[in-house]
């Protein structure tokens, strides 16, 4: 009760934030596995205002954890707030020691945060992942890649031979997938305002987030579907979004 708060994100002070319904009230539109439980956890979400900005905060967990439900709560609260108006998401797990120091931080970073908010207003993040189909790709490079073909011709069952062959397959597969990833990025780039490289994720040849104007979302999703069908099964192209602007919380050029 010392006033520590979990911080979900930063919004403009005039954000049309509505607190969630208190738990116990009948849910007009049940959603998820445990709507009552979710609402109970989200019930304490409120704004802490400082000047032109406000922080979206909730009760700090007594013992911070990153269980599935904690991660989901972070995403769910941010999505809900974002649907009401622009928000700059915090990274998962930020806890402010008290309201006073949180307000001081908001004032200190006000200019940067206001710039960033202006840049994400009317825009959404779309995360795009290009995932090679291992089976299709291995068959392709076995037939087409000169190095793999050569090694394959003379490889024995010995451990070093298998290692060398596998390494050649991995290199050929990476190179082939990079071509497809590049093609996807070049096709989508003109539809986005900004892009942000995502962290490397296992099994992904491309992980990129795009900042997309609301009126271009349909075009982006349609282009992703077209690209997905155009790669002859070598790679799948997945789009996740529209999402809150997780990857665009720092203003461009600032």
């Amino acid at each position: 009760m010392s006033g520590a708060v979990y911080v979900f994100g930063i919004v403009a002070a005039d954000h049309p934030f509505q607190p969630p319904d208190p738990p116990g009230k009948p849910d007009p539109a049940p959603a998820g596995d445990d709507p009552a439980g979710e609402r109970e956890r989200d019930a304490g979400v409120r704004l802490v205002r400082a000047g032109a900005l406000a922080a979206v905060v909730g009760p700090a967990p007594p013992r911070p954890r990153a269980r599935r439900r904690d991660l989901l709560a972070h995403q769910r609260v941010l999505e809900r707030v974002w649907r009401m108006g622009p928000v700059l998401p915090m990274r998962f797990g930020v806890v402010a020691p008290d309201g006073g120091r949180l307000r001081a931080e908001l004032v200190r970073g006000a200019r940067r945060h206001l710039d960033a908010l202006a840049q994400v207003t009317g825009r959404a993040e779309v995360n795009v992942k290009v995932v090679p189909d291992e089976e299709v790709m291995v068959r392709l490079v076995a037939e087409q890649d000169p190095a793999v073909r050569q090694l394959r011709g003379r490889a024995t069952r010995s451990y070093p031979d298998r290692l060398r062959l596998g390494e050649a397959v991995a290199a050929a597969l990476r190179a082939r997938a990079a071509l497809d990833a590049d093609r996807v990025l070049r096709a989508l780039r003109p539809l986005a305002v900004r892009e942000s490289a995502g962290p490397e994720v296992a099994g992904c040849a491309l992980n990129v987030s795009l900042l997309v104007a609301d009126d271009r979302l349909d075009a982006v999703l349609a282009e992703v579907a077209r690209l997905d069908g155009d790669l002859d099964g070598r790679c799948r192209v997945h789009a996740f979004g529209p999402l809150p602007p997780y990857s665009f919380t720092v203003p461009a050029g600032g």
Binding site: P64, R91, F92, V94, N127, H238
Partner: peptide, 19 residues
């Protein structure tokens, strides 16, 4: 599908403990 975004992106305030 987007877990890495909430773990790697977003604002971090250095002065605050990231638990």
């Amino acid at each position: 599908d987007t877990l890495e975004l909430i773990l790697d992106k977003g604002i971090v305030i250095d002065a605050f403990v990231r638990v």
